[in-house]
């Protein structure tokens, strides 16, 4: 194609044609009329973004401090956790339209369904508690007082344990879901936030937001086995969908690190501006969409070149991000 362009077209036109082709190759595969949903935690709105035009098309009030979101296990709804409104809002995952509101969920900061879909866990970052609900009816089963600052959640594959990072007491807590009790806590480094179970189920990776590394934990023995230096403000994880690699955002270093979960080694890091936080990767792995918390922007990275190919202005302190055509979660 490039050869044809050079022969038939003038050099200037050929250059432009080649550039368009290059850009085209980076275009990710979104379905028609699909929208990207971004939570603007600092202003209580969601931005609805056209992923092809890379432009915000609508901004909708959703509640106070929406930080994180996730699809329901049947993928029919998207749940937005409004921490300061103390409620959950269910959206249409494709259009972002509000479908319903579930009230009286205390400070839902991070939320998660156990893999067997029997439990729904909500970590209250502000109120120092973790709530366990039976799913799907969201009936409160047990409240756990867990100071200080419960943050992110992970589950073991058997849905027996929920792991919660405690950001301000520098700990990791393990909750037995069936027994409804905290079975252990272990001391970690500074401000553990993101927590991630490797696909083999053996290790937990924990991002040390107050430091520059990921702590690798043998959770069955409740002991640390390795440190992976990634970047200052190691924070949140997202699977690359190949069953092997996981991405980690480093909020202070303004980088994203690729970690090989088989070798437990850092593979590479690349720059993303503005305090990168939550991420979403397209199904074809071509584009990484990242919320840049401190500059009111969603940054789009071409994963082939690791270059910024899109800067989309959104609301204040964008945090959670979601689109339907995302990469597999492992």
């Amino acid at each position: 194609m490039k050869f044809l362009a050079k022969r038939v077209l003038s050099p200037a036109l050929a250059g432009a044609f080649t550039a368009v082709l290059a850009a085209g190759s980076a275009l990710a595969n979104f379905t028609a009329d699909e929208r990207v949903i971004v939570l603007n935690s600092g202003e209580g709105t969601i931005s609805i973004v056209d992923p092809v035009a890379m432009k915000e098309v609508k901004r909708i009030p959703v509640g106070k401090e929406p930080h994180h979101l996730m699809a329901t296990p049947d993928n029919k709804s998207l749940i937005v956790a409004n921490a300061a409104s103390n409620d959950l809002v269910f959206l249409d995952p494709k259009s972002g339209e509000i479908v319903k509101r579930v009230d009286r969920i205390s400070d839902p900061y991070q939320i998660g369904f156990s893999p067997d879909q029997k439990w729904f866990v909500s970590a209250s970052n502000r109120l120092d508690r973790v709530d366990l609900y039976s799913a799907p009816e969201l009936k409160l089963v047990k409240r756990f007082e867990l100071p200080k600052v419960p943050s992110h959640i992970a589950f073991d594959a058997a849905s027996r344990i929920a792991f919660i990072t405690l950001q301000d007491s520098d700990e990791l807590a393990a909750i037995d879901l069936a027994e409804h009790k905290v079975i252990w806590k272990m001391k970690l480094g500074k401000q553990p936030a993101g927590v991630w179970l490797t696909p083999d189920g053996k290790h937990l990776l924990v991002g040390m937001t107050g430091d520059n590394y990921v702590q690798v934990i043998d959770w069955k023995a409740a002991k640390s086995v390795k440190k992976l230096v990634t970047g200052a403000g190691a924070h949140n994880f997202l699977a690359m969908g190949d069953g092997r690699h996981v991405l980690l955002s480093n909020r202070v270093a303004n980088t994203i690190t690729v970690i090989d979960q088989q070798t437990l080694e850092v593979k590479e890091s690349f720059a993303v501006p503005g305090g990168p936080d939550c991420m979403e990767l397209t199904k074809d792995g071509k584009q990484l969409w990242v919320t840049s918390r401190w500059i009111r922007q969603v940054t789009v990275i071409d994963m082939a070149t690791k270059k910024v190919v899109g800067k989309i202005p959104v609301g204040k302190s964008p945090h959670g991000i979601y689109f339907v055509s995302h990469a597999p979660r492992q």
Partner: peptide, 20 residues
Amino acid sequence: HGFVFEKLVEPLVFALGLST
């Protein structure tokens, strides 16, 4: 806002161990 925060405030908060 982002510039002032990232250049002045964030490094200080991080250095003081107050990233939470």
